[in-house]
Design a protein around this nucleic acid. Structure first.
Length: 721
DNA sequence: GCGACATTGTTTTTT
DNA sequence: ACAATGTCGC
C-alpha cells in the first residue's frame, strides 16, 4: 500500500537494494551515497511489503547515535512507533540478552558493567594482587591483551603460552582479572559480546528461539565489525535468517582496535548466496572533491572497487595552504571561517578536521582569541567525569555490596581517614578469605589486625553505606541519586574543593540528578532489572554526548575518526604532514598506511562544497619543533584539482608572543616573523621564528632553496626585502 | 591528608 | 609542552 511511497524517493541502485528479494545482501555503499537511507528504507520496506511485524527485525549499529537515528528514520517512514523492533549497538543488544538470560549466562542478576576506566583500575588492582611491578607489566598493555583476546572470543583457559614467559604472565593476569570480575559481578564491554556469543553457543534452545523470532537482520557499518561481532552474527543468522549488511571497505578506519575489513570480503563465503549491491552515486560532494577522493583512494591495493560519481557540478577547486607553523595554520583557518561568514554562510556548516586531538588546542586558542564560536567534539563525556563516577560508585555499592571496584573508589572519598595502610589490610583479608571487600570490612571491624582508629573509620563508612541503602530504598530514581550525593558527602566535598573546578562538579552532579529524572525506563529492554540498575547500565553503555552545550552557530572541531558519518558544507583538513598524517606510528606496520589513507578519504568526502587542505612547515610536537614534509596524501591528489593559496595574505605583522619576548631581537633588528629576507649565502627566505636576546639572538629563516636554518642575528647579515 | 616534586607517556574511539 | 599520576616528606 504505502510501499510505493517508501521507495519513490530512491535512485535506481538504492531502490534495487531496498527492494531486493529476501536473502543475504551486502550493500557496498560509498561515502555520501545514502547508506543510512537505504538501511532505514529496507526496514520500512520489510515491515510494509512483507507484512512482517517490527518484532521480527533486528538492526545492529556501532554507536548509540546511529541506533537512535535509525530508529527515528524508520518511525518517520512508517509513521508508527518502532517498539518491538530490536535496534541497538552490538553491545546494547548483547546486554539486553544477558539481562534476560542472566541465569543461562552464569551471571548474577544485577551484574554491573565496567567501562574502560573501571577496567583499567581493576587490572591495576589485579596486578598489585599478583605482586607484579607496573613498570614491567604496564596495565595498559594487559588491558589491551585481555580485550584483544576477548575480541577473538578467547578466554584465559583457551590460551597457550607456548613456553613464552611473557605470554604466560599475561595469561595469568587475564585469568586473575576474570576471577576478580566474577567475584564482584562485573562485566566489561568485550565481555558483553563474548558472554552473549557463549550464551548462544551453549544454549541451542535459546539460539533457536531467537532464530525463530528474528526474520530479518540488518547491519550498519559492516566494515567495522571485529571477529567476535562477525561470529555472533554468523552464529545467529547464517543459514537461518537473511542478513542485510551495509558497509564501505574504503571507510574502514578502526583496524587498530580490532575491526576486520576482511569480514566484508568474507561475507559472500559465510553468508550463502549473498548478492552484492553497489551504491556509487554520491549526493554530497562536488565533482572536484569527489575526483580528489577517488584518486587518493586508488593508491590503496586490495579494494573491493567502487568509483563514486556525482551529477553535481565541478564546484570550486580545493585549496591547499602551506603554513609556516601551526599558529599560522590556525590563523589561516580563522580567516577562512571569517570569509565564510562574510559570504553569508553559517558557521555550523563548517568543520575543522584533524588527525589527533592534541591539534585542537592551538585552533581553540586562536578561535577563542578571535571570538569565533567553536565546538570541540570528543574529550570527556558526561558519565565519564570523575565526580559522576564517584556518585555512581556510591549508588552501585549501596545497591550491591559485592562491587569491589566501587568500594575501592569511594572508601576514602571524601577522605575519612581510611588510608592506604588500612585498605591494603582489607584487600589482603579479602584475598586470603576469598570474600568481597565489603565482607572483609565487616569482619575486620569486629576486631583484630587494625588500630582502633582505623576500625572506627571503617565502621563509620559501613554505617554510612548502610544508611544510604536504607534511605533510598523506596525512593524514585532521581531522589535516590540526589539523596546519595548528599548523604555520601560528595556534594560537600566538592563544594569545599579548591581551584575553580568545584562549581563545575556540583553542576555536573545536579545534572546527574536531572539525567536520572529524565531516564526512560523501559522494562521490556531491561529484563527484570530495577530502575536503579537500569540507570547504572545506561550510564556505562551510553557515556553521553560530549557537552550538551550550545549547538548553535559553532564551527565544529573534531578528529577525522569522529567525523565519519557526518557531512559539512565547508571542511578544513589541517595538519597534512608526514609523521602526523599519516601518523608516524602507522608507518611501520603494513596495512596501517592504507588505513591512514582511508582516513584521509573519509575526511575529504565529508565536504559538500568547499574543501581546504593545509599543512605546516614546522610544528611543535611533544615540546620540540618538528619539520615535516607535506603529507604524501597531498601528492596523491591530482594537481589540477588543487590550487595553492599563498601564505603572505594571511600573515599577521607580528605574531603574538609572551611578554618576555616583546623586546625581541627580531624586532630590534627590524625583523618580524613573516618578513622576507636576503642572505648572502643562502639567498632569499622568510623569517619563521626567533629566540634569545642581545648577542645570542637567533632567527629561524626558511630559505627558498636551502630549507630552514637558525642563524645568529649578529653574524648573519640579513637584509630585509 | 596534603602539598611539593618527579616520572611518565602521550593516534585514532565505542561500547 | 603538558597533563596526569606517583612518591615523598611533613
Amino acid at each position: 500500500m504505502h510501499s510505493r511511497l517508501i521507495i519513490d524517493s530512491l535512485n535506481d541502485a538504492q531502490r534495487a537494494a531496498v527492494t531486493a528479494p529476501d536473502g543475504n545482501i551486502l550493500v557496498l555503499a560509498g561515502a555520501g551515497s545514502g547508506k543510512t537511507r537505504v538501511l532505514a528504507h529496507r526496514i520500512a520496506w520489510i515491515c510494509r511489503l512483507e507484512e512482517a511485524s517490527p518484532y521480527s527485525v533486528l538492526a545492529v549499529t556501532f554507536t548509540n547515535k546511529a541506533a537512535a537515528e535509525m530508529r527515528a528514520r524508520v518511525e518517520a517512514l512508517l509513521e508508527i512507533a518502532s517498539t518491538g523492533m530490536w535496534v541497538g549497538t552490538f553491545h546494547g543488544l548483547s546486554h539486553r540478552l544477558l539481562r534476560t538470560h542472566w541465569r543461562e549466562a552464569h551471571l548474577p542478576q544485577a551484574f554491573q558493567i565496567l567501562d574502560s576506566e573501571d577496567q583499567y583500575r581493576l587490572i591495576r588492582r589485579v596486578l598489585k594482587g599478583l605482586e607484579l611491578d607496573e613498570a614491567h607489566w604496564p596495565p595498559r598493555q594487559s588491558q589491551w591483551f585481555i580485550n584483544a583476546r576477548k575480541d577473538e572470543s578467547l578466554r584465559a583457559k583457551d590460551l597457550d603460552d607456548q613456553g613464552d614467559r611473557v605470554s604466560w604472565q599475561m595469561i595469568r593476569i587475564y585469568a586473575a582479572y576474570e576471577q576478580a570480575c566474577e567475584r564482584a559481578g562485573l562485566v566489561d564491554f568485550a565481555e558483553l559480546l563474548l558472554r552473549s556469543l557463549e550464551l548462544f553457543r551453549h544454549h541451542p534452545d535459546l539460539l533457536a528461539h531467537y532464530r525463530n523470532r528474528f526474520r530479518y537482520i540488518l547491519v550498519d557499518e559492516f566494515q567495522d565489525t571485529n571477529t567476535i561481532q562477525y561470529d555472533w552474527l554468523r552464529l545467529l543468522a547464517s543459514g537461518h535468517i537473511p542478513v542485510f549488511a551495509v558497509g564501505d571497505d574504503d571507510q574502514s578506519i578502526y583496524g587498530w582496535r580490532g575491526a576486520r575489513v576482511e569480514n566484508i570480503h568474507r561475507f559472500s563465503q559465510d553468508f550463502t548466496a549473498a548478492v552484492i549491491y553497489r551504491l556509487e552515486q554520491n549526493y554530497r560532494s562536488t565533482g572536484t572533491i569527489l575526483a580528489a577522493a577517488n584518486h587518493l583512494i586508488e593508491h590503496n591495493a586490495g579494494r573491493l572497487g567502487k568509483r563514486l560519481w556525482t551529477s553535481d557540478s565541478e564546484g570550486e577547486p580545493i585549496q591547499l595552504f602551506a603554513a609556516y607553523n601551526e599558529q599560522d595554520e590556525a590563523r589561516f583557518v580563522a580567516d577562512q571561517l571569517r570569509e565564510w561568514i562574510e559570504q553569508g554562510r553559517k558557521l555550523d556548516k563548517a568543520a575543522i578536521l584533524y588527525r589527533s586531538n592534541a591539534q585542537s588546542r592551538i585552533l581553540e586558542e586562536v578561535l577563542f582569541a578571535q571570538s569565533i564560536p567553536y565546538r570541540v567534539y570528543g574529550g570527556l563525556r558526561f558519565f565519564e567525569r570523575a565526580e559522576i563516577k564517584d556518585a555512581l560508585a556510591y549508588l552501585r555499592l549501596a545497591a550491591h555490596q559485592l562491587d569491589d571496584p566501587s568500594f575501592e573508589r569511594i572508601i576514602n572519598l571524601p577522605p575519612r581517614g581510611i588510608g592506604e595502610r588500612t585498605q591494603s589490610v582489607l584487600r589482603e583479608y579479602a584475598r586470603d578469605h576469598g570474600v568481597t571487600l565489603w565482607e572483609a570490612a565487616l569482619e575486620l571491624t569486629k576486631g583484630g589486625g587494625l588500630t582502633s582508629r582505623a576500625v572506627n573509620a571503617l565502621k563509620q563508612f559501613l554505617t554510612l553505606m548502610e544508611s544510604i541503602t536504607k534511605a533510598i530504598e523506596a525512593m524514585p530514581l532521581h531522589e535516590q541519586v540526589e539523596k546519595t550525593i548528599a548523604l555520601s558527602g560528595l556534594r560537600a566535598h566538592y563544594e569545599r574543593e579548591a581551584g575553580g573546578k568545584g562549581p563545575d562538579r556540583i553542576e555536573n552532579l545536579d545534572e546527574l540528578v536531572n539525567a536520572a529524572r529524565g531516564f526512560n525506563f523501559n522494562p521490556s529492554q531491561h529484563g527484570d532489572m530495577d530502575r536503579l540498575d537500569a540507570f547504572l547500565s545506561h550510564a556505562a553503555l551510553e557515556a553521553g554526548e560530549g557537552q550538551s552545550e550550545s549547538w548553535e552557530e559553532c564551527v565544529q572541531l573534531m578528529t577525522l575518526h569522529s567525523a565519519k558519518g557526518l557531512e559539512f558544507h565547508f571542511v578544513m583538513l589541517v595538519g597534512l604532514e608526514e609523521g602526523l598524517f599519516p601518523h608516524a606510528m602507522s608507518l611501520e606496520q603494513p596495512g596501517r598506511l592504507e588505513e591512514e589513507r582511508r582516513l584521509c578519504y573519509v575526511g575529504i568526502t565529508r565536504a559538500r562544497e568547499r574543501l581546504i587542505l593545509s599543512y605546516a612547515e614546522s610544528r611543535r610536537h611533544f615540546g620540540s619543533v618538528n619539520y615535516n614534509p607535506p603529507s604524501r596524501f597531498i601528492r596523491e591528489i591530482p594537481p589540477e584539482h588543487l590550487i595553492e593559496v599563498r601564505p603572505q595574505i594571511t600573515l599577521r605583522p607580528l605574531v603574538t608572543r609572551p611578554q618576555n619576548k616583546s623586546d625581541s631581537p627580531a624586532k630590534e633588528g627590524g625583523l618580524q616573523v613573516g618578513q622576507r629576507v636576503m642572505h648572502p649565502g643562502f639567498g632569499e627566505g622568510i623569517v619563521l621564528d626567533y629566540e634569545g636576546q642581545g648577542r645570542h639572538a637567533r632567527v629561524q629563516v626558511r630559505f627558498d632553496t636551502e630549507g630552514s636554518k637558525w642563524l645568529v642575528l649578529e653574524y648573519a647579515k640579513l637584509q630585509r626585502l
